[in-house]
Design a protein around this nucleic acid. Structure first.
Length: 199
DNA sequence: CTAAGGATTAACT
DNA sequence: GTTAATCCTTAGT
């Protein structure tokens, strides 16, 4: 079943990030259903987290939707090329977010290959935050998309991922965040090949 | 291992 | 108004 808005509005973004591992992410963009199982996430908290774009209450064009109530998409461009997909959580005014870093494809694999410009079944089809957005057709124009709608949404398939199979580790690529870089707020399924290639 | 790439932002004039 | 630095990465040597 589709996750309700109330799910995203829970206060503990780290708990949500951990719980999202094993859930499913789908998009229906250009009328084509694509999606898969979430195997890697990272939590970003509003306050006390310098790695978060919204830290210290910065309120700009880019971070605007982070302050909305949980349940919208925060898509932004990194390194001029790649769109990263985040889910805004918590209530309005608390700019918490969960970054989706890895997806195990289950639906619309042929379409995903097409979007990636591949002719063969690549094993890195959706392994990486910039790749899964390409595969699912998510672009920066989807900034602010309501996740209770029919364009981008998440589903709970009642799958239980054993706690022992979920590993927590420091987040990736955020050395600039100082001491906060050590927080174990990255969650992934142990040994899953679709987790991101980044260190 | 490195190079590329464009938006964003802070720091200037 | 402009410039320079930075970035939650990937693809290609």
């Amino acid at each position: 079943m589709k996750l309700p808005l109330a799910y995203y509005q829970q206060p503990d973004v780290v708990a949500i990030a951990r719980d999202l591992v094993g859930k499913y992410l789908f998009t229906r963009i250009d009328g084509v259903l694509t999606g898969g199982r979430i195997v890697e996430t990272e939590a970003y908290a509003h306050i006390d987290d310098q790695a978060c774009h919204s830290h210290l209450g910065r309120f700009t064009k880019r971070t605007r939707v982070m302050y909305e109530a949980g349940g919208v998409a925060y898509v932004y461009l990194i390194y001029g090329r790649y769109a990263l997909f985040n889910i805004i959580t918590n209530v309005a005014g608390k700019a918490d977010a969960v970054l989706i870093r890895g997806l195990e494809p289950t639906e619309g694999i042929a379409e995903m290959q097409l979007r990636r410009g591949l002719t063969t079944a690549a094993k890195n089809l959706t392994a990486g935050p910039g790749l899964l957005t390409q595969a699912l057709g998510i672009q920066v124009s989807h900034y602010g998309t309501d996740l209770s709608g029919d364009l981008i949404w998440l589903e709970d398939h009642q799958e239980v991922v054993p706690a022992a199979d979920i590993v927590a580790s420091p987040r990736v690529g955020i050395d600039y965040a100082g001491a906060d870089a050590a927080l174990p707020w990255r969650f992934r399924i142990k040994g899953n090949p679709w987790t991101s290639p980044a260190k």
